[in-house]
Amino acid sequence: MDFALFANLAFNGLIEGAVIALPAVALTLVFGVMGFPNASTGDVMTAGAYAAQTGQIAMAGSIVAGVIVGSVASALLALVFYLCVFRFFQGRPSMYALVASIGLAFATRSTLTFFLGYDQRVFPIPLTRAFSFGPLRIVPSDLYILATSVGAIVLVFLLLYVTPLGRRMRAVADNPDLARSCGISSHRVLSAMWLIAGAVTGLGGILFGIKTVITPLMGWEALLPAFAAMILGGIGNPAGAIAGALTIGIAQELSTPFVGFTYKIGVGFAIMVLALVLRPSGLFNLSARVR
């Protein structure tokens, strides 16, 4: 166990954290505005990954086209979930929406496996040779994953904090009754929010699929660390969710020499439990938050 090993583990953890940050941001946006943990987030990731892989093959192998197809598909799926289900649970106890979201998660997964089976799939992208950067061995595709994730997150932050739409989203998240008395139609604002959350979630699934493989359970498994990241960052705080995702990604990877690959996910949970006990409002309770 030398420095180079840990440096490489940390770098890999950074990439995994950057991927988990996407569903974590979507989770925290939805929780901040709608007030419930959306358990269907993981399976929207999976759906996005399958849609992207199918789209990529249909579009003559263009991964960019695949990413666009997958993000749009998952955005629409999330919007449909809102319009057909979550809309009706507003102002009711959050347990209703949570249970409904678990149901939607199972329904999504069953539908995917019914049509596509349980086989693993991979994105048909050419293998690239890793290059050395100091002690690090870096695969170029990891850099593309990192850049895509950072780009998507910057876009979400610009939307939230620079545009009139984002201002209204934050207003609705802040005080829905007051928003109504200002004539803000929360329905329209929330539809846009679900589209954005869905696109970001799907992109997370796609990047996860590129980094590893696409399986029907990939999203469900990614949901748990994304959830931990949201809690670690303070619910409703997008910047916190990103910091939480990076912390958990890096901590999980750094722990593998000690606990082994199989149990690294437990480390993410240990961190979340500690955070809940010591600082229930989140470790990264910054001023920049939607709620």
Binding site: R167, A171, D174, N175, A179
Partner: peptide
């Protein structure tokens, strides 16, 4: 009556 505002904005 009790003033309301979007307090994080």
């Amino acid at each position: 009556q009790v003033p309301r505002e979007f307090r994080h904005l």
